[in-house]
Design a protein around this nucleic acid. Structure first.
Lengths: 144, 144
DNA sequence: TCCTAAAACGAAATGATTTCCATTTAGGAG
DNA sequence: CTCCTAAATGGAAATCATTTCGTTTTAGGA
């Protein structure tokens, strides 16, 4: 697995430092999104020195390279998610337990086309995310 | 126009205070999204006293009532937009000049259905927004 | 093995947003 | 029209997630 991540970093032209790999590994081991501080707290005992800014920086760089994805959260804090799916897709995120599920197809390319034409401009990106409660949390009467 | 806004506030069970109405009027006069601080600066000369927290509070309450909408911005700051369109719809926002255009139909209801079924949970909300450059900004070589 | 650009440190700064509580006000009741 | 109360506001201060800074360390190609 580390090998896989090291290669992903090489593709992104980022150095495969131990801390960067550890961050990736930790995110990869979850099916939920995590905040920089949470990851930092969990990684601290694996390194005698690990700065919170390092975690922030790495997560941001990894997201910029497309290795991980950002989650849009109502509280507007930063959360990241490691996603094996390399195809263009979107996410359903559970606001209670933070589980993330892929939404494989979105018909947005067509919409982008149409909107570009109509406004005569250029669509650079789109945001599509479904928020809700996963099966378990809904059954348990969870709240966002 | 103020009458229209006062009614909208009554519908939302919010008092029609002068400042609240002024905030709504100012947003309504724009075809672009605005930040709390920008609105505050522009409204300050119309009131001898106007606190920035009041602007933040009002914008948040108005958005919660659905009278105005929030814009999701890459810089993660708060922006708001007044939208006459009372139907469910989404927005194209120009990252350069901040112009907002409606995207009338989204096929997301179907997607919500499908995802709810698949995960056995509940989709509470969805985010869909197209980011880009409007016709004018794209022609002028604008940057996000 | 060296060298250099990239990465990490951690203390400190930042700055948008929120909180607090005292004061004012809108608007329904009488 | 006048009262009354819940809602709204002011303004200073706090919050706190995130970023910056200058220095030190390190990965990895030469």
């Amino acid at each position: 697995m580390e090998q896989r991540h090291a290669l992903a970093l090489k593709d992104a032209k980022m150095k495969a430092t131990p801390k960067r790999l550890a961050i990736l590994d930790m995110l990869d081991a979850e099916s939920a999104y995590a905040s920089p501080e949470e990851l930092w707290k969990r990684l601290r005992d694996r390194f005698d020195r690990l700065g919170l800014p390092t975690v922030y920086r790495n997560l941001e760089e990894l997201a910029a390279s497309g290795v991980i994805s950002k989650v849009i959260h109502p509280n507007r804090q930063l959360y990241y998610y490691f996603c094996r799916n390399r195809e263009h897709h979107h996410h359903f995120v559970c606001l209670s337990c933070r589980k993330v599920e892929d939404i494989p197809s979105c018909g947005i390319e067509a919409l982008e086309q149409e909107v570009s034409q109509r406004i005569g401009g250029k669509v650079l990106s789109h945001i599509l995310q479904l928020n809700g409660l996963c099966g378990g949390c809904a059954a348990a009467g969870g709240t966002p």
